[in-house]
Amino acid sequence: MIIINVKKNIYTAEGLLDLKVKINVPKQEFITIFGKSGVGKTTLLRMIAGLLDPDDGFIQVDDVVWFDKQKKINLPADRRNLGFVFQEYNLFPNMSIRDNLRFAFKSKPDEPLIDYLLSRANLTKVENLKPDILSGGQKQRAALMRALVKKPKIFLLDEPLSALEESMRQNMQDLILELFEELKVSVFLVSHDLGEIFKLSNKVVVIDKGKIINQGSPLEVFAPGDISCKFKFEGVILSIKKADLVYIVVVKINNQFAQVVATEEEIKGLKFGDHVIVGSKAFNPVIFKANKQCV
């Protein structure tokens, strides 16, 4: 069981933010922290990692207390046995990819494990190169593997795929999912991408202005509960045009474009740029607005 109950006052672009988060989740869950920029998502991950001290609260993983303000317990970051993957990769630029993985060991590097991780991430051919000359995808795979070197119990991913192009992003999502199932770790992912969240997460925690405003499965959080669909895709409206008695709505779903026929009733409240869910109940795709509070 992972118990997180932390408070922290942080300064954001919009002023002082009172971050109060309480999350209780079983082990080996894939949890996404979702919310707009500046609501405290990265701060929450940094507090879990031990890189930032909460003003008050309690963090416990399994039976080990990582942080307890009252009892003055504060386990250092390196003793929390976690992996952290940052948005900016954070590979050490003066070291080769293999040396970056070696550096993650506290004592003698486990070379066979490094070999395995490099081959798993398809990085064997570039293992002796410095990070600067690698592609974004290669750098992020290397950062992911470096975080796994310590065989962490908890994996913290702070928007790790946001800088990648779509196809690379899909590959990385597949790799993360495979590793999650193989290593049986608990994952906390910060992400804005609904497709990514639906693909990877068991649970979504939505934070707004420092507070949890919604949590549950991705479907519970992002789709209205009274609609039952055979399939659902998240997308963004690119245009709405009237065609005789109906409307043609063009929706971008990942890298594809779908045209959906909608009635006047269905397009009420929809406009260009809205996040929507396109689904099918039987044979006809229907379109409805994704949970506004969460998108």
Binding site: A49, R79, L82, F84, F86, E88, F92
Partner: peptide, 20 residues
Amino acid sequence: NLLDAAKIMGKGRIEILLRV
């Protein structure tokens, strides 16, 4: 962030200074 990455790996101040 690079400093954070090194701290999570359990590296001491001197090792971080000299190697990173």
